[in-house]
Design a protein around this nucleic acid. Sequence first.
DNA 1: ATAATTGCAAACGCTTTGCAACCCC
DNA 2: GGGGTTGCAAAGCGTTTGCAATTAT
Lengths: 167, 167
Amino acid sequence: MSLSLDKNGAAPADASGQEPLLAAALGRFEGLLAARGLRLTAARRAIVEAVLRRAGHFTVEALVADLRSRGLAASKATVYRALPLLTEAGILASAVLTADERTYERAVGREHHDHLVCQGCGKVVEFEYEAIEVLQRELAARYGFTLEGHLHQLFGRCADCRKGDTK
Amino acid sequence: MSLSLDKNGAAPADASGQEPLLAAALGRFEGLLAARGLRLTAARRAIVEAVLRRAGHFTVEALVADLRSRGLAASKATVYRALPLLTEAGILASAVLTADERTYERAVGREHHDHLVCQGCGKVVEFEYEAIEVLQRELAARYGFTLEGHLHQLFGRCADCRKGDTK
DNA sequence: ATAATTGCAAACGCTTTGCAACCCC
DNA sequence: GGGGTTGCAAAGCGTTTGCAATTAT
């Protein structure tokens, strides 16, 4: 089994040359919406663009602020109503979810990965470990389950935080 | 340290041979509290008992209801204030945590495990897979992290739900 | 036209907090 | 008595929802 590790962070550069991504995202979105008799409106388009423009993890609040700062149409309520749709369309994904944090990230044009969070400084490392994915599938099968998804987050302390950081 | 019984003499009502667990839990709790200049009060004792009496996963609401139905002292606020302490003492652990569910479970006297949740019927299977635990440690080490914990939940569909249930 | 969509603000549900009374050491 | 503890109710917060106006097809 190949142990492919994502490059730390690999923060996707934003805003540049993402037309193809945007096209792919809007295409998917429109497909999902059409399949349900829903419409691809200006507000929804703006939300998709805002998500793609974001690099890394972000909160709903930040996304709404982005839209607002660009004078784009999409109120908080509309954003919240769009989140599940974006997720189902594979455009958006939940990033970190804990008792006191909830962030999202772009999903279109990216590979699946999980998160390793430093409890000292909050740094988040994205990782992809096929061996674990395999074991998860094996495990689900063992219990007669069809695996549809998972939430896997590792919490620890990074080297920097172990050295000097307070707390 | 000595384990004093509830001052009002109220013996744990049901209880099926859990005295040793209760003793262990109270002992740990008292230790943690003492180390911080905090006290093991009747309310906190009642909460510990309520947690041990619970089988399986439960919500805070359910725990509060338990206490209330037994006329035990411990308001909702007190329970919420005790949760982090119980967790640190290893008496309580978070069970399932998703965007719309948050349950806890007894940790004392139990082995570590993660959860497999059926998205059809809500059934939760607890699993312990050492191979995955090992890979997690390996992964954290690879990034220079000291692993302190993790949240690993698998979501799928159980055999029963695949057979008949409506989607 | 017909039905979906949106913004706003009110409603919500869960968790936290301010505060005065209380209890323990 | 000093300081931790508790209950109650109010405050917070992020998310959801009712509703009337608006817009897409």
